[in-house]
Design a protein around this nucleic acid. Structure first.
Lengths: 117, 117
DNA sequence: TTATCATATGATTAATCATTCATATGTAGG
DNA sequence: CCTACATATGAATGATTAATCATATGATAA
C-alpha cells in the first residue's frame, strides 16, 4: 500500500474489502449498461410511464411524446438490457417493467431527488 | 384516447396514473443525469470501491486502475451529480458515497444481476 | 518562499450514441 | 391473398462524451 495520504492503513482495509466485494468486469459492464439504458431522459420517461402499468407502443408514444420509430428504438434498448419486457397481444406488443428491482431503483431515485429543487 | 389496441380503456387508466405521477421534465433530467453518471464502467467501479468506505484519490486510482487525471475527471462527474461527496484532510481529498439512496441503488442493481451469467 | 506532493481543470480528439427517415416484418380482417 | 395496421429495423448523421495531455491550484514542509 502506497503511503499516499495520512491514513494509508485505514485505506488499505477499505481497499481490501472493496476488492474482495468487487464484481467481475463482466458484471460491472452489465450493471453499467443497465444504468446507461435508463439514463436518457426519453427512456427514463418511458420507464416512469410503464411503472403505472402495461401499455402498447402507441399508447407509450402518446404518453411520452415523440414519434413511433424513436420510441421503438428506445424500447429495444430498454428491453435488451432487461429493464422492461414485452408480450404480444394480437396486433400489439405490450410492454411492462421487467421486475421489482427496477421498480425499487426508480422509487429510490425519486426519493434521492428530494433535496434538490 | 386513441383506439390503438384492444384494451384502450385499461390503457387510458394507466396513462392517467402515469401522467399524474410523472415528475417534471427538470426532475427527470436530474434523475437521468444521475443514472448517466453511474453508467460508465469506470465510474461505477469507483463507486463500488467507495461503497466499502472513504478513500483518497490516489488510493481510489490504485483500487480501480487508470491514471490520476482520468480518475479525477470521473470523481468530478460523480460529485457534480451528488453521487459522492468529498472533504479535505491536509494535502488529500477524501471521497465517500453521498448517501444511503445510492448504496441502496447499488445493492439493488447487484441483486438484479443475479439471473444473468 | 520555494519545492514538492496531491488533486483539479481546460482543451483536444476519438469514440459512442440518439434521432431521423425509409423500409421491413408480422398480424388480422376482408 | 391483398390491404391496412402495429411495430421493428437499418443506415446515416449530428450531438455527446470519455480519455489523454499539459498545466494549474492548493497545501505542506523545509
Amino acid at each position: 500500500m502506497k503511503n499516499a495520504c495520512e491514513t494509508p492503513e485505514e485505506h488499505e482495509g477499505v481497499i481490501k474489502t472493496a476488492l474482495a466485494d468487487m464484481p467481475s468486469d463482466g458484471a460491472i459492464a452489465t450493471m453499467a449498461a443497465r444504468f446507461k439504458a435508463i439514463s436518457e431522459p426519453s427512456r427514463l420517461k418511458i420507464l416512469l410511464a410503464l411503472s403505472a402499468g402495461e401499455l402498447c407502443v402507441e399508447h407509450i408514444t402518446a404518453a411520452v411524446g415523440g414519434n413511433q420509430s424513436a420510441v421503438s428504438h428506445q424500447l429495444k434498448t430498454l428491453k435488451d438490457n432487461r429493464i422492461i419486457k414485452s408480450r404480444r397481444a394480437g396486433k400489439n406488443i405490450l410492454y411492462s417493467v421487467d421486475d421489482d428491482h427496477i421498480m425499487t431503483m426508480i422509487k429510490v431515485a425519486k426519493e434521492h431527488l428530494h433535496g434538490d429543487e
